[in-house]
Design a protein around this nucleic acid. Sequence first.
DNA 1: TATCATGGTGAAAGCGATTTCAACGACAGG
DNA 2: CCTGTCGTTGAAATCGCTTTCACCATGATA
Lengths: 326, 326
Amino acid sequence: MVKMKDVAELAGVSSAAVSRYLNGGYISTDKAERIKQAIELTGYVRSSQARALRTGSTKLIGVIVPKINSESVSRITAGIGQVLGRRGYQMLLANTDNAADRELEYLDLFQNHPVDGIVLVATMITDEHRRAIESCRVPIVLIGQNVEGAACVYHDDYEAAFELGHALAGRVDGKIAYIGVTEEDRAAGYDRRRGFEAGLRAAGNPLDAALIRLGSFTLDSGYGAARELLSVAPDVSFIACATDTMAAGALRAIDEVRGVGEGIHRVSGFGDNAFLRALTGGIPTVHYGYLTSGVEATNMLINTLDGVEGESGLKTLKLGHQLMNV
Amino acid sequence: MVKMKDVAELAGVSSAAVSRYLNGGYISTDKAERIKQAIELTGYVRSSQARALRTGSTKLIGVIVPKINSESVSRITAGIGQVLGRRGYQMLLANTDNAADRELEYLDLFQNHPVDGIVLVATMITDEHRRAIESCRVPIVLIGQNVEGAACVYHDDYEAAFELGHALAGRVDGKIAYIGVTEEDRAAGYDRRRGFEAGLRAAGNPLDAALIRLGSFTLDSGYGAARELLSVAPDVSFIACATDTMAAGALRAIDEVRGVGEGIHRVSGFGDNAFLRALTGGIPTVHYGYLTSGVEATNMLINTLDGVEGESGLKTLKLGHQLMNV
DNA sequence: TATCATGGTGAAAGCGATTTCAACGACAGG
DNA sequence: CCTGTCGTTGAAATCGCTTTCACCATGATA
């Protein structure tokens, strides 16, 4: 492994000069030229480990996600990766598989360890999370939840759900049911349900609390909840879901119970899933710019890390949404 | 930042002793006890950067994927992450966005840089790739393609496609068309098309070369190719696709042209996508254990890194598949 | 002429671990 | 009593880089 000293000797300079050359310090043009050639000749590439040890910066960003194999998260991750690559950082990915404790674990691991900053794709935010985030020694940006005192990039789920509920209330005749997710997920659980309820109520068609079920983000859980709903309350005519994935499950349930094709205009979701859009022609749903949220969050983080001028640094950013097919 | 020396002083030993304690070297039980307490008291955690510099090992695995926001890849990634977490490694994720040159770039970056091993979720394998893989100074495992001389975990796309083609030939009456992907992707492009053709031929219903189109993995490309096929050859009665995602697009095209519901039994794919399964009741497709391939590849890699006894190390592993809905 | 910036430079001091090495006390065998 | 072995130990070297610091020309300024 060729090291800096070798390059320096070959170029007839000190290793300090080589380091300066690499990092843009004082260096005369002729020495710069000699160093450049020596580097090309030897194929030298500097050890990021030694550099990291010395400078304390690793050019690594820790990314914590609840589940990588989901459409929304993988799009967010794609956005994060785009920016990271463009700006000279790399992504250390931690998948918690929806276990909140593993989230904390990674938060810990990353802090004491090799990352310069953290992007947390958040689901549940407990007090413990808040504490961990606050005491984090590297900058951290949250995606998907709006947490007081932390830098966040999020969508206004309450507002979106309100609009969706309000719009649907007029078009649906008959009973509306709702399949949500755990309210520990403030945005997708609490805000969406509350917003949806408020929207329906505002339109004069309030949601019957007896027709609310809880899913777990998966297609199967949507299917199961919908089957149960349809058997308990056969007169339900519309099932709103907290995610498109669960809506797909509900769709399947309706088709099974009432015949293929019946479900299509009987469910709504969140997320504007591409498969669902193509295969059904489009259910009512909310389009979020997932990729954008990854991009924005990461830019924000790296701006503060690199000390970019004119950027106000870590802040809270609310992104817009779009109602689809209503 | 509390360092090893601090712990050593507090425990009244040398830092060498602390290091030995941490790494399981000679240490008397009473000193071990004192060190243990000192560590707990100070909350010491060792700098992985210093450790990496000294030992040359970072406990980081580079994972190169063509596109993170796709069902198959994100499942593979989930599998990789599972094993990595369990075995004390972390994942450095590089998303190439389907650009082969960025793949090589990362291969380079990772080699000279901080990873102990590499998992490459492969699409196109050029000669340059082969060279890069061969000259790689850290162990590397490929997923998804079978490349001579490299450790691979893959599915037999030819065989699967053959079986699918053979099975379909009997059930479909009328003309069969095929929407493939670039043959630079040996497995998904070349093998699947060849296998499918061979399967049809073996069943006495050969594929008409004029009814072959090329997509680009996306739903929209499947849609576009199918629309074009249907207008050029209106008598086509079945469209086989190289991926479920493109099949979803084709389905939409058929529904548009021939009316909703018509498409469902008129397309096939590869990958057994969950949405497609739920929303259509299941098109003919091939189920691959994507998560499993991530798991197997990563275990193989880490076995060699950690020198696990009784493991033969890097090798080629062919995983099974399963025909669905035929 | 004396003084001062200013652009360049290399020696050397770290960064925080691991690991070699020589040495030590204790104890067994000859 | 001497020697060898064994389990332990800490000093010190090392990993490869960055960065401070003192210092040197050189040309401008007073």
